[in-house]
Design a binder for these strands. Sequence first.
DNA 1: GCGACAG
DNA 2: ATCTTGTCGC
Length: 226
Amino acid sequence: MDIKRQQEFPHNPALAEALQTQLAHQIEITQGPDQARLIGAADVAYHKHQNIAYAAVILYDMQSHTVLEEASWIGEPEYPYTSGLFSLREAPLLLRAFAQFKRTPEALLIDGHGIAHPRRFGLASHLGWSLDIPTVGVSKTPFFGDHAPVGDQRGDQAPITDQGQIIGLSLCTQPHTKPVYVSPAHRFDMQSAYTFVLRCCTRYRQPEPLRKAHDLSIRLRATTPL
DNA sequence: GCGACAG
DNA sequence: ATCTTGTCGC
C-alpha cells in the first residue's frame, strides 16, 4: 500500500511540537466505517540493551478472525523516547512496515493515542494521517486529559476531557477488567471509535488485531539474529 | 522547585 | 518499552 503523506520532523522538540500543532488541523474527526473487515494493527517491541526497534504490522480479517498479512521493519529509531513526541520515534518505522502490505486496510488500530494528546496529534493520528486511513488509538494507560473512573462491565465508558472538550474515552472491554483508553485518531469520531474497538475486543482486554501485532513484534525480537 | 510523563 | 513468577480473584 502507498503512503499518502510523508513528513520530516525537526529534531528540535519545540519546533517538532509546533509542526504537530499545524498537522493536527488536517486530522478529520468524522464517522468511521461500521463494518470494516480488513483491520490493520501496529505495535513495536524493543531490544533489551541495544537501540533496536522491531516494528510489526498485521492485517486482520474480522470475518474469519485470521491474520491475512504480516509485515515488519527492524531498525534504529531516529528519535529518543519523549512523551508527547512519541510518534516521531515509532511512526517512521511503522510506515516502512505498512508500505509492504499488498492490500489496503479499511481501518487501523494503533497501540497509542490519537487526539487524546496535548496537540491532538498522537502516534495513532500521525499514522492515520500519513496513510489517510480511518484510525483509532488504543492505549493501556492514560496519557493526556482528565478521566473519571469507569464501570467494570463490558461496554462501560467514561469520557476523557481537556478543557471541557471530549478527546477520548475510558472503555471497559471485558467484565472485571481495567479499561483501555480509546481516542479517535483520523476519520473516526467518538461514537464510531467506541463501536469499532468494542467489536474488535472479542476475548481479551486488548483488541484482537493489536494482540496479534504485539505477538509479531515479540516474535521478531526472538527470532532476529543481531 | 517537584513530580508526572503513550511506548 | 524492558526487567520478572506465582498467585489471588472474577
